[in-house]
């Protein structure tokens, strides 16, 4: 897989603050990169550096294998983005907003505009100027602008902000479709971690201007795995029961002889029944695991303690 983004040692300083400190980031073609961080962590700053809206104080950005201001500007024409919320011309209609950018980018014909409007359900907004749109409509227009001209790389800063649940699902499905069918690479930052969890294939966690961790969705799932925890007065016999009666193969023994099962998470009563029937005293039975939010909290908690 070739690199779409390769940022090394990116630093961004403002007068009295360091917004980013030696950040490395790598996004490969076809990935959906979930960018996670608290408010002010540096997500938007990094996105602004990638899009050329700001210049790094130090470090290097490589996009589509190109570096240097001139080459970066050239390859940026293959991207679409939302930066710092929906940027739309308030006095223009949805169609006019898209038409301005279609003309600027030299896209032929009106089909791009129609497609973009259809994707986000804004075909029937007619002469209504964007300033009279609801927040959700403005956000959908910003998404349409980002997708205009079928870019290879989408950079979306909080794309689901202000969207109702129906549109959150539709946009997620559209992004997934673009990724699967057209191999579009996506960088998406969001506060709604549960939403990100349904989309991302790779995660980058940023905290206080530093990249804390970059891991794949599979690795994260492994770390956030849920277990059914069983504690009895006879762990050895319990293991035998689990293996022979319930045919459990994937379990491990934790501290204090705690048995941790990845099966039967939704049917703990079957496990309890099998153990009690053999006359073993069941001390505790509970489901334990991290959500993405829990994982993130633990991660940044660890960083702060360090």
């Amino acid at each position: 897989m070739d690199d779409i983004v390769k940022a090394s040692k990116l630093t961004k300083k403002y007068k009295n603050t360091v917004a980013l400190r030696h950040v490395d980031m790598e996004i490969k073609r076809g990935q959906i990169y979930g960018f996670v961080g608290q408010n002010g962590a540096g997500k938007s700053t990094l996105i602004r550096l990638l899009t050329g809206a700001a210049q790094p104080t130090d470090g290097e950005i490589e996009l589509f294998g190109k570096t240097g201001a001139r080459d970066l500007a050239r390859v940026r024409s293959r991207t679409g983005c939302i930066i710092d919320g929906p940027a739309v011309a308030p006095g223009l209609t949805a169609r006019q907003n898209l038409e301005v950018l279609r003309l600027q980018r030299g896209l032929p014909g009106g089909k791009y505009v129609d497609e973009a409007l259809e994707r986000v359900g804004l075909m029937d907004t007619g002469k209504k100027p964007a300033k009279d749109f609801s927040m959700g409509m403005r956000q959908r227009l910003a998404i349409a602008i980002a997708m205009l001209g079928d870019p290879e790389f989408l950079i979306l800063d909080e794309p689901t902000n202000g969207l109702d649940p129906t549109w959150i699902i539709q946009i997620r499905e559209e992004l997934t479709r673009l990724n699967k069918e057209k191999d579009v690479t996506i960088l998406v930052s969001s506060h709604v971690l549960a939403e990100l969890h349904k989309l991302a294939t790779v995660y980058g966690f940023i905290h206080r201007g530093q990249m804390v961790e970059q891991i794949s969705a599979a690795q994260l799932d492994e770390r956030c795995r849920s277990y059914l925890c069983v504690q009895t007065d006879d762990p050895e016999r319990t293991s035998t029961i689990l293996e022979e009666t319930l045919k459990v193969t994937d379990y491990r023994v934790g501290r204090d002889n705690l048995l941790m099962l990845t099966d039967f998470i939704d049917e703990p009563e079957r496990v309890a029944d099998a153990i009690v029937r053999e006359g073993i005293a069941l001390k505790s039975l509970y489901v334990q695991g991290d959500s993405l939010e829990d994982y993130f909290s633990r991660l940044i908690g660890g960083v702060e303690r360090a």
């Binding site: 899009t51 050329g52 809206a53 970066l72 500007a73 050239r74 390859v75 940026r76 024409s77 991207t79 679409g80 983005c81 930066i83 710092d84 919320g85 940027a87 739309v88 011309a89 308030p90 950018l101 600027q104 980018r105 602008i145 950079i155």
Partner: peptide, 18 residues
């Protein structure tokens, strides 16, 4: 002023426009 105020100029710059 309009494009700087609404932020739409960022979209052009992010698309590689000078």
């Amino acid at each position: 002023a309009k494009e700087f105020q609404t932020g739409t100029i960022k979209l052009s710059v992010a698309h590689g426009q000078n």
